[in-house]
Design a binder for these strands. Structure first.
Lengths: 118, 118, 118, 118
DNA sequence: GTGGTCTAGACCACC
DNA sequence: GTGGTCTAGACCACA
C-alpha cells in the first residue's frame, strides 16, 4: 500500500482503522488484524503498525487482550466521531472562517465549492 | 511571541507577513522589517525569519533589493489571494466534505459552527 | 470472566485460587477444579490455567496427584500468608513510604484513604 | 546507568525526569537534556529516551520547542503530583487494603513497617 | 544542532 | 501464535 508523505504513516494507518471501524469492516468486539499480519499486508514495519495501534488504544478505540490481539472497543464509533468532531471544531472550523474572510467567500460560495467535488 | 507547535515556525511567520500585507500594515513597494530586526522582535532565530522571507520571495509576494531589504511586490495582495485560494480548494475543501459526511453535518450545522466563532 | 491487562492472567488466576483457599472455598486436602474445567469456566486457554497451577505448585500451596488432579496442600493458608507477607514488605512497603513522601501524605491521611474504600 | 528489569526502561527514564523536576534539578521553563545527549549519558538508545519524553509530553509535564529542545512545563510539579496521586489511590490503596485484611495487619502495624525502613 | 519518523531485526513474557 | 520493548542506524524537516 502507498502512503502520502504529508502525514506520518502511523497516523495514516490509524485513519485506515478508524475508517474501517466506521464502515463496520471491523465491528465492535471483533479482533482486528495482528500487528505482524497487518504490517506485512501494508508492506510496512511492524513497529509502525504497533505505533498506530498504541495510538488508538490510548484513545480507547481499540483494546488489547493479552496474547490474543487487539479488539474494537464498545462504543468505538462514538469515540471516533467525538474525537474527530472535537478536532474539526478546534482546528479546522476557525481556519475555514479565516479563509472565508480572506478570500471574501460567502457561505453559499463555500457550499458550492464543497458540492462541486465528487 | 508564542508559536504553536503544529506548524513550522517559518510558515507561521510567513502568515504573519501575508496577513500584515492584506491588512495594509505593509503596503505595496514598502519595505518590510529587516531579517535581524524581525527576528529579535519575534524572539526567533534569524535563519527562521530568513526562511519565511525566501518562501514569500519564491511566491513573488516580496522581493529583495540587495543591501537594502525586502519590499512588498506589486500585486502582492492578488498573488496572496490566488495562492491561498488554490490551496484552500485543493487541500481543505475535500477535507471539509469528508468530515461533513463522517460527522453527519448538514450545511446549516456547518454554517452555525463557523458563525459561532468570533 | 474479565481480567485486567496490567497483570499476567496466570497470576490473576493464581490470586483467584489463593483467595479461594483463604476463604475456605477449597479446604486443605480438597481437590480444586481440573485445568480444563477451570479454563472453560474462565474462558481462558488451558495452558494459562496450567501455568497458574504450576506456579502455586512451586510454592507448595497446591500439589498434583497424577491422573487425579490438584489438591490444596496442608498448611496452604500459612504458606500463602508467609509468601504474600514477604512480598508485601519487600516490594510494597518501600513504595508506600516513597509515595507518602512524594505526595506529602501523613499516616492519618493514608489511613483515611484506606478506610475510604469499601 | 543500570535499570531494573521489572519496569520498562522508558518508564524508568520518565521517573528519572519527574524525580529530577520534583527535586528542582530541572526547574520550570528550563530545558532538559536533548534526546541524544541524555541517551548517550544513560547508555541507552535515543528512541528509548524519545519514548520517555513523548510520554511526559502527553501528560503535559514537558513541552517541545521546535528545533530547540524539551522544556519543563509550567505547573509540572503539580501535574506530576496529581498524576502520581491518582495512580496511588486507584492502584495501590485498594491493594494495601486487601493485603491488610489478608495478612491481618492493623494500621499501627502497617505504620511500624513503613517507619522501619530507612 | 534539535526532534520525529521509519526500518530491520532481535528478545521477551504471555496465551 | 500474540503484543511490548529495545537496539542500531538511517533520513527528514526545522531552527
Amino acid at each position: 500500500m502507498e502512503f502520502h508523505a504529508q502525514k506520518a504513516i502511523f497516523l495514516q494507518i490509524a485513519d485506515l482503522l478508524t475508517d474501517g471501524i466506521m464502515e463496520e469492516k471491523w465491528k465492535v468486539d471483533e479482533r482486528i488484524p495482528s500487528v505482524r499480519e497487518f504490517a506485512t499486508s501494508l508492506e510496512v514495519n511492524p513497529n509502525t503498525v504497533m505505533r498506530a495501534y498504541s495510538y488508538l488504544q490510548d484513545q480507547e478505540i481499540i483494546a488489547n487482550k493479552r496474547g490474543i490481539g487487539f479488539f474494537v472497543s464498545p462504543n468505538a464509533n462514538h469515540k471516533i466521531i467525538a474525537i474527530k468532531r472535537e478536532e474539526f471544531i478546534k482546528l479546522e472550523v476557525p481556519r475555514i472562517s479565516k479563509m472565508m474572510k480572506l478570500l471574501d467567500l460567502s457561505f453559499d460560495e463555500l457550499k458550492k465549492l464543497i458540492s462541486d467535488i465528487e
